[in-house]
Amino acid sequence: MDECDRIVAQHGQAVWQTIYRLLGSQEGAADCFQETFFQFIQIAAKSNVDHSLALLKRIATRRAIDLIRKRANSRQKQVPLDEQYPSKEVDPWKGLAAEEFAQSLRDALQHIPPDQATVFCMTQLEQMDPSEVGTAMGIDTGHVAVLLHRARAALQGRLAKHLWASRRQP
């Protein structure tokens, strides 16, 4: 078993879950998975990597978000969130299935800057420590906090649009 085998065996499942969670399906997940490890080994070939999993998750998150964004750009018509998930419920979020909530957040992530999306995913979805995220991204913890704050604000705005549009439904 060589270094490549060990890295994939050790972190493959975690990377796969990161990617799959963000993409919501297997479509493109295999490409993302391969590209993540490919990019990782390229980085590792040039410099010492102290926190392999954190770096892998950063790459995986960024790759998955990029893919989501590409998919959205390839659509002929961008469908607003509030048109994708119309609800006739007065209390709309109660009428949404868990997967619809998840999908709405996936879609919202593509509309915020990649660094913000990456920090949000790593801290809120992967539940990584901010210092770990900072190390993986090459930024200090304070910067992580700033990016997370901006990400939350932007995502809240995106999701709020959906919420209030739904509430307007009779």
Binding site: Q13, R21, W93, F101, L105, Q124, Q127, L159, A160, L163
Partner: peptide, 25 residues
Amino acid sequence: KMSDDGDILEIATRHLRESRTASMP
């Protein structure tokens, strides 16, 4: 409204975090 906005982000985050994933590649 602020409270609702915050809630829906938390709810969406939780659902996405707990969404079903294929266990292994």
